[in-house]
Write a protein that binds this DNA or RNA. Structure first.
Length: 891
RNA sequence: GCGGGGAUGCCGGAGUGGUCAAACGGGCUUGGCUUAGGACCAAGUGGCUUAGUGCUUGCGCAGGUUCGAAUCCUGUUCCCCGCACCA
């Protein structure tokens, strides 16, 4: 092997370069930063990941965005803080550990797929083992992709970290003091045996099912009320009759001062839902048939009829009939009208029954004004036992709810959209005492103890009252002053802030911090992660502070400057004041409607205005190969998987080049591979071309074009970086830069000083994206210190010469014309052209260089001004010359 | 339905009133180099035409404004995300 030629070994070992520099950064504590008087700071962060597994490529995307920003700002001269903590609060890990304790096969299989041995899996039945495993793994992954994190400030959440635990307790006491926490009723899925709420993970069946809000409607029936439950109170104007199951024994119960008739099962549910009731006597369903009751709101007497589809276990076991919009009701009516036997059995007058017709009440786009009829015809449903009725009901519900408008039959509500009318009618009927809320599960849920679950209304649930108007106004004020990247998410944020309502912020179980004044509650995970960015400012110091001395007055001092503090506390106060607020927090767009908005609400509630967040950056969801990452599609990748395939620098750049803005970025394998190749080429190029030289030759035309382009892309790229448009940034600062370099070299005879200058620019520009390679090259060209701290090259507007670059386009075009003509000559005459004569306008002579043209065309090129008397022009081609378009003659 | 974002070549995507057949990246075709592959270099990649510098088509669909529109306006179709108490 010839070692004297650097280009003889163009490929090199990315892995060892990465290790080398990660080690050096660590050894020099490069990214461990403290408050530094007089130096401007920049604080970036992103939501701490939940540590229930290895981090995936989506995390890498988010982390890289933040790291690129951190490195860019560092190059801009800022003292940059990029801390990283880990979120352990919540139920998933807690539940998974419990499942492993119970040796559940599904969870065990998941652990196996992550590569854990049976012995190891057993250890995961302890929550702490998850933390001990995945937190170091996550930190390792971050380090391996080159994230410039100050690891001293890393921490975990929950009571496992007492100082943090106390911080959250402090936060909640503050919120309570200020009246932002309210107590209220809240429906949960409940196991009557365990006397506990049942989360998704505790269910044998019914994952994803939630309490659904129904309305109980009251139908006056003598001195009693028949109660029907409905999801569609807006359809009351279409009521034609009432359904009862004649085979069911109903119960008369006392509720408040009223007597209700409902099924026995319903009465049980009412008890769970916090109603005070008293059982009176049974009422056989058959006795009700044929009688009349008064429908609420419309005050119409409607007949009570028998129907077999009525299920005592669902709702109240009584149903109001709206045949126009409810397929069940319509088909039951048809069934009954044909069923002379039943009519006879209950002594029902067939004339009366036949006279019952659906009343058109809602006009919907696709199903017209009698949707139930329409859909039953479409699906050819024959009777009330058909299972497709369920699907038909849902289809119509969705259609009617979203696109429906109330028709004239609906009295004062006519003309309103269903969306609006529904709420209005609920409010009106509730005010009239005709409607009560009721919850029913959206599907069957069975607890792991095999007990069927029901809805329980918890009466002492704590809420963060995000519906509060004055609180919202503060958030809007904060928002109006924030930098948002991209700016167009502002609309979305304003919308969300308006729409957010009271948020249940406590859970019965899971890991986390206990609600300090009501310790049977655990603070829920989205609620304990709203202002912790402030905790980063002191996280490294508080670790060494005596836990017992950390109380509310401690935090009051650190964050508000209230009271006095010892030397350590003063230092923490200083750190907080220096770093806070954060400058930008970056996240995927799905967190807009919860986490990011909560972050603002809690900041404005707790902190004075000078510590309100300054910026959010929002990005799309990372796609891999154009598709959502998913295990079932086989395109789910952890960071560690990817680092096996690609060098960290290629991975980072590939991710950043995948996309920007709100669109979903796409990580494409070919992109990462391309980047890797280009980086390798760049590495050899620098080795081959960088030669320190004191030779200051005057810049020629070609040099000036090159320098102009450098400064132009530098300007464009820097602007993109400021807006966190890293795709554009990488494009301008690397791909375009490399392109103009290539063009420059093509023009021949590069000026060593200019090439050196280019290399000295390109390396720091590459550094935010590909920090390892950049460090290596920085060292290779003999620069002192780390490129991580090198200054960002400044664009010099005086060097940008657009006119000059424009003239080069003319030359390019001419070259391509010449090539074209050469080709045609060969095709037509079979002869190779030997010499090319160019006739250009005199003023253009200065940028047509015969040597350059000869080099680029590969044949001898002679250049003349059109008016040159000595020109060689046998065919008068010179006459064709125009500004920007030389005449061409080939011999 | 509401709120938000979109629709440009074979693909990912630039481009927001003229100089844009359309950056950059990928793919593909041809040629060079090479034992071969990869890499690299060169040319090509809507249609037509041509010893060139030309014409034409086109930016979801339909209209409109303008001397001129992918870009502005109106209508319309389709796609994606969210609509919650779950991290």
């Amino acid at each position: 092997m010839n070692t004297s030629e650097p280009s003889a070994s163009p490929s090199f070992d990315f892995a060892s370069i990465e290790k080398k520099w990660q080690k050096k950064w660590g050894a020099e504590h490069l990214f461990e930063v403290d408050a530094q008087e007089g130096k401007p700071k920049y604080f970036v962060n992103f939501p701490y990941p939940y540590i229930n597994s290895y981090l995936h490529l989506g995390h890498a995307f988010s982390a890289t965005r933040v790291d690129v920003m951190a490195r860019y700002k560092r190059a801009q001269g800022f003292n940059v803080l990029f801390p990283q903590g880990w979120h352990c609060t919540g139920t998933p890990v807690w539940a998974a550990a419990q499942r492993l304790r119970e040796k559940e096969p599904k969870q065990t299989a998941i652990m196996k797929s992550l590569g854990f041995s049976d012995d190891e899996i057993e250890k995961f039945s302890d929550v702490e083992h998850w933390i001990d495993t995945f937190v170091p793994a996550a930190q390792e992954d971050f380090s391996r992709i080159g994230a410039s994190v100050d690891w001293r400030r890393s921490f975990i959440t929950t009571s496992l970290n007492p100082p943090y635990d106390r911080f959250i307790a402090w936060q909640f006491r503050k919120l309570k003091e200020k009246g932002y926490l309210v107590k209220g009723k809240h429906p949960v899925v409940w196991c009557p045996k365990d006397q506990m709420p049942v989360g998704d993970h505790d269910r044998l069946e019914g994952e994803g099912e939630t309490p659904q809000e129904f309305s109980l409607l009251k139908f006056a029936f003598g001195d009693d009320f028949l109660i029907a439950a409905t999801l569609r109170p807006e359809t009351v104007f279409g009521q034609t009759n009432f359904w009862v199951n004649p085979d069911v024994q109903y119960m008369r119960i006392k509720v408040k001062n009223e007597r209700w008739i409902v099924s026995y099962e319903c009465a049980q549910k009412l008890l769970e839902q916090d109603w005070q009731i008293e059982f009176l006597d049974p009422v056989p369903g058959s006795e009700l048939v044929g009688k009349y009751c008064k429908a609420p709101l419309i005050n119409r007497e409607i007949i009570i009829l028998p129907a077999s589809f009525v299920d005592p276990r669902f709702g109240t076991g009584l149903v109001t009939s709206v045949p126009s919009d409810a397929p069940y009701d319509y088909i039951a009516l048809l069934d009954l009208q044909k069923d002379t036997e039943t009519l006879k059995l209950y002594g029902l007058d067939s004339k009366v029954i036949s006279a019952i017709h659906p009343i058109p009440i809602i006009e919907s786009k696709t199903y017209g004004d009698l949707p139930a009829l329409r859909i039953i015809e479409q699906l050819k449903i024959k009777n009330q036992q058909d299972p497709r009725l369920e699907q038909a009901t849902q289809t119509i519900y969705k259609e009617g709810f979203y696109s429906g408008k109330l028709k004239a039959a609906c009295g004062t509500y006519a003309g309103m959209s269903v969306v609006l009318a529904k709420d209005k009618m609920k409010v009106d009927m509730a005010a009239a005492g005709l409607l009560e809320p009721f919850y029913e599960l959206s599907g069957k849920v069975t607890c792991r103890c095999l007990t069927p679950c029901a809805v329980k209304v918890v009466s002492d649930q704590w809420f963060l009252n995000y519906g509060d108007k004055t609180w919202k106004d503060l958030v809007k004020k904060c928002l109006s002053k924030m930098n948002l990247y991209p700016e167009l998410v502002r609309q979305q944020f304003n919308y969300v802030v308006d729409w957010l309502n009271a948020w249940a912020c406590t859970h019965h179980h899971g890991t986390g911090t206990k609600l300090p004044w009501d310790e049977h509650w655990v603070i829920e995970s989205l609620s304990d992660s709203t202002i912790y960015m402030a905790y980063y400012t002191i996280a490294h110091l508080i670790k060494d502070y005596p836990v017992e001395k950390i109380d509310d007055s401690f935090f009051d001092y650190i964050f508000f400057g209230k009271g006095t503090g010892d030397a350590e506390m003063q230092r923490m106060r200083k750190e907080f004041l220096y770093w806070y607020p954060f400058d930008v927090r970056s996240s995927a767009k799905d967190l807009i409607q919860n986490h990011l908005s909560f972050c603002l609400f809690n900041h404005v509630a707790i902190f004075p205005e000078e510590h309100w967040p300054k910026g959010f950056s929002v990005n799309g969801w990372l796609l891999v190969g154009g598709e959502k990452m998913s295990k079932s599609k086989g395109n789910f990748f952890t960071i560690r998987d990817m680092l096996e395939k690609y060098p960290a620098d290629a991975l980072r750049a590939g991710l950043m080049f995948g996309g920007e803005g709100l669109d979903d970025p796409n990580f494409d394998f070919t992109n990462a591979e391309t980047v890797q190749q280009k980086l390798e080429q760049w590495y050899s190029f620098v080795q081959d071309y960088y030669h320190p030289s004191s030779d200051e030759k005057e810049l020629n035309r070609s040099d000036k074009i090159f320098v102009s382009a450098i400064h132009r892309y530098l300007k464009e790229g820097t602007e993109a970086m400021e807006l966190m448009n890293f795709r554009s940034g990488f494009d301008r600062l690397f791909f375009q830069m490399q392109r103009v370099l290539k063009e420059y070299l093509k023009r021949g005879e590069p000026n060593q000083a200019v090439v050196n200058y280019f290399i000295e620019c390109q390396i720091p520009l590459l550094s935010p994206f590909c920090p390892h390679l950049a460090e290596e090259l920085w060292e290779k060209i003999g620069k002192k210190g780390f490129v991580s701290f090198a200054s960002w090259p400044a664009s010099d507007p005086s060097k940008i010469d657009l006119k000059l670059e424009e003239t080069e386009k003319v030359v390019d075009k001419t070259v391509s014309d010449v090539m074209n003509v050469l080709k045609l000559v060969k095709e037509k005459s079979g002869k190779e052209g030997q010499t090319i004569y160019l006739y250009v306008m005199p003023q253009e002579l200065s940028f047509f260089d015969a040597a350059v043209m000869t080099r680029r065309v590969g044949k001898e090129v002679k250049v003349f001004a059109v008016n040159d008397k000595n020109k060689h022009d046998p065919e008068g081609k010179a006459a064709k010359a125009k500004p920007g378009k030389p005449g061409i003659f080939i011999s």
